[in-house]
Each structure stands twice: as C-alpha cells, then as structure tokens.
Design a protein around this nucleic acid. Structure first.
Lengths: 90, 90
DNA sequence: AAAACACATTGACATTTATCGATATGATGC
DNA sequence: GCATCATATCGATAAATGTCAATGTGTTTT
C-alpha cells in the first residue's frame, strides 16, 4: 500500500466510517481529549481508541499526551494534501 | 446512514479502496467503458462490476449504456460537494 | 505506595468486504 | 434466431473490519 494512490486511499478509508468522520468534524473545532470525544459518541472507550489509532495512522490526526489525557487534533496540512489530491481530479 | 455525515462517509468509503481510487483517477481523464478500465487493472470482470456499483451508489460516478458497452464518468458536481465538505473542516 | 483516573491493548466474535468462477442478461451482427 | 460480445448478478469464501468486555499501562492524587 505504499504508492501514492494507496496513501490517499488510506486517508479516505480512515474517513469512510461514520464514527470517524464525526470525530474528525469534532476535531475541526480544535484539539479535544479522548474523554470529551467519548461522551459525544455512542461507543465504548476501547472502540474509540481503535478509531483514533486508524485516524492517526492515516496521518490526518495526531495525538499528544497531556498528563492523564490524550489530546487529539487535525493535521491541517495533511487534510490540505488530501483536498489538493481530490481537486487535481477532474 | 442517511444523515449528512453518512453521505460523505459513504463517498469516502467508496474512494477508500485502492482499486476504486485508481478507477476514479482514470475516469478523471474522461468517460471510459468498463472494458477499458478492466485491462488497466488486475482484477476480474465481476470484481470490476462490483466496484463500479459501489462508486455509482456513492454518487461520485455514473454509468450509461452505449450499445454493448457501459460508459462510466465522474460526477464532477458530487466530487465538488465532497471537496467542499472537506474544505469546510479546519 | 495505594487508589483512582484516562487511555491502550488483547482476545473473541459477528458483520462486512473484496474476490472469484459460474451463470444470467442485454445488445449486436450474421 | 443464433452466436458473440460486454456487463451484471449470484453463490461461495477468505480476509478485513468494527465492536465489546477484560485487562494492561502510564499518570495523578491522596
């Protein structure tokens, strides 16, 4: 999966899930801790953790530890890349 | 799956596959018949048909019959919607 | 240092997905 | 009308995915 198409396919696969796209939209308001995301969604904590890993692996999201919490945020430049790729089509 | 997030999640799920994103990029050069797509990809004819259905169901692609052939093309306005949605994030 | 908190990882499981061979459908040409 | 070509559908199957309860890990609080 390490060609160009694969990279973008991977990003879109990451966003191709309703829970994850909701998370992504929430993060567009700014950095959020996992616990905050958790109580906006009807999923368990392990499931959230699973989705966050997929989002981070795609490159579209990053997390940092802040004491007990994990704070997640968008990587705007990666999203911009994806938008650029899609805009290049057509 | 009929809320807004679901609609875009569905589009990204459609593009979240390497074969389908390749198809999508091919279609960006203009309308193509299935047979042409088929010999650019290392998949069987039923598998291509399966992928085309997913792309069409997402709204990003449409097909029309032309005699024996099916000609597929991008729906640029739907792609533009998706790009607009992503651009609204961040 | 023990308890509590926030999150990640593991193992299990059901569902979905991608794939194929075989077959059906629809159009064209003879 | 029959053979052929292009595509879709069906049935089967293996692999990937999303989900959870249970448990592990790292951090803070008492």
């Amino acid at each position: 999966m390490e060609n160009v198409d694969g990279r973008y396919a991977n990003m879109m696969k990451a966003l191709g899930d309703e829970a994850r796209i909701k998370i992504f939209v929430m993060l567009s308001k700014g950095e959020e801790c996992a616990c905050k995301l958790l109580d906006e969604l009807s999923i368990t904590q392990p499931t959230l953790s699973y989705h966050m890993k997929i989002l981070c692996d795609s490159g579209l999201v990053e997390g940092r530890r802040d004491g007990k919490w994990m704070r997640y945020s968008l990587k705007a430049e990666v999203l911009a890349e994806l938008i650029g790729f899609l805009s290049g089509i057509q």
